[in-house]
């Protein structure tokens, strides 16, 4: 089963919404809020739509509402993958 990694998620974010805001060298982007990374709600919507297509997850957007960081989103996507019947 394909799992989402944070590196892959950051690459998808980049493809969907362009490069994020500049970071400090010590920053770990997967732990930062999407807002701090410079991705707004539309950027996330576009990214979620892409994740649904690429990973075949099928879920309500409400489940994503509480997600704040790439690491949290990666965890959520992988949890959904684990419980999906096709997994």
């Amino acid at each position: 089963m394909t799992q989402l990694t944070t590196d892959r998620l950051l690459a998808i974010l980049h493809e969907c919404a362009g490069e994020g805001d500049p970071l400090e060298p010590t920053d770990q982007p997967e732990e930062l809020d999407f807002a701090v990374l410079g991705y707004d709600s539309l950027a996330l919507l576009e990214t979620l739509s892409r994740l649904k297509r690429e990973f075949g997850i099928d879920t309500e957007e409400d489940e994503f509402a509480a997600v704040r960081t790439p690491a949290e989103l990666t965890t959520l996507v992988n949890r959904l993958l684990a419980r999906s019947p096709s997994a």
């Binding site: 919404a17 362009g18 994020g20």
Partner: peptide, 8 residues
């Protein structure tokens, strides 16, 4: 233009 603007 930045890569942020191109998809939108």
């Amino acid at each position: 233009l930045s890569s942020r603007l191109l998809p939108q």
